[in-house]
Amino acid sequence: MNPIAALERLGHATLGSLALVGRMTIFALSAFSHILRPPFYPREIAMALLNIGWLSLPVVGLTAIFTGGALALQIYAGGSRFNAESVVPQIVAIGMVRELGPVLVGLMIAARVTSSIAAEIATMKVTEQIDALVTLSTHPVKYLIAPRVLAALVMVPFLVGVGDVIGIAGGYAVGVQNLGFNAAAYLQNTVDFLEMRDVVSSLAKGAAFGVIAALMGCYYGMESGRGAQGVGRATKGSVEAAAILILAANFVLTGVFFSL
C-alpha cells in the first residue's frame, strides 16, 4: 500500500476517534447539566428507576449467585494445590466486592439496559418521535436522557451492592454445603477481611459503570441512522462501547482505589 495513503487513513481514523470522544463528552456534559436544571420530569425518572433498578434485580441476582458459587469452587480447588483451601471466604468476599460484583453487574447492565435504551431512543428517532418532542416544546435531552442517566447513577450502585451480597451468599452456600466450611466461621472470616474501602470502591465503580451504560445507550440511540439497520447498528454500537468503557473504567478505578 502507498505509505501516504496509509498515513492518510491513519490520520482520518485518529481524527474520527477524537471527534467521537469530543461528541460523547459534549453529550455527557449536556446530560448532566439537564439533570441539575429544571424542569424535572418525575414520571420519566420514576419509570427509569423502575426499569434500570428494580427490573434488573433478577438478572443481577442470578449472575451474582452463580459467580459467587463458582468462585468458591475455583478458589477451593486452586487453593488446595498449596494448602490454602481455608481462604475461600476471604477471597470470595474480596473478589466479589472489589472486582467481580461491579464488573459483572456493569456488563449485565450494558447488555440489558444499554441495549434497551439505545433501541428505544433510536426507534423514537427513526419514527420522528424525537422531532415531535421538540415541536411540543420539550427538550429531548431533558425528557429522555437526563432521567435515564440519573436513574443509572442512583440504581447501579444499589444493584452492585445487592450483587455483592448475593455473590457472597452464593460462595457461602457452596462453601458450607459442598466444601465443608463451618457456617459461623465462614461469615466471620468474610466480615473480618472486608474493609470499608472495598465496599466504597465497589459502589463507586457501580455509579461510574451505570453512568457509562446509560450514556452510551442514549448517545448511540440519538445518533442512530435510518431504518431498522440504523436501529440495529445503534444497539450493537452502544453495547460494544459500554462494555469496553466499563472494563477500561474498571482498570482505572481499581488503580485509583488500590494502587495509589
Binding site: 423514537m124 419514527t127 420522528e128 418521535q129 415531535a132 421538540v134 415541536t135 411540543l136 416544546s137
Partner: peptide, 16 residues
C-alpha cells in the same frame, strides 16, 4: 415553538 403544531408523516405518537 408554542405557536406551532405539527402532524408528522407516521404520526410520531409516543409509544409509552
Amino acid at each position: 415553538l408554542a405557536r406551532f403544531g405539527m402532524l408528522f408523516q407516521g404520526g410520531a405518537l409516543f409509544d409509552s
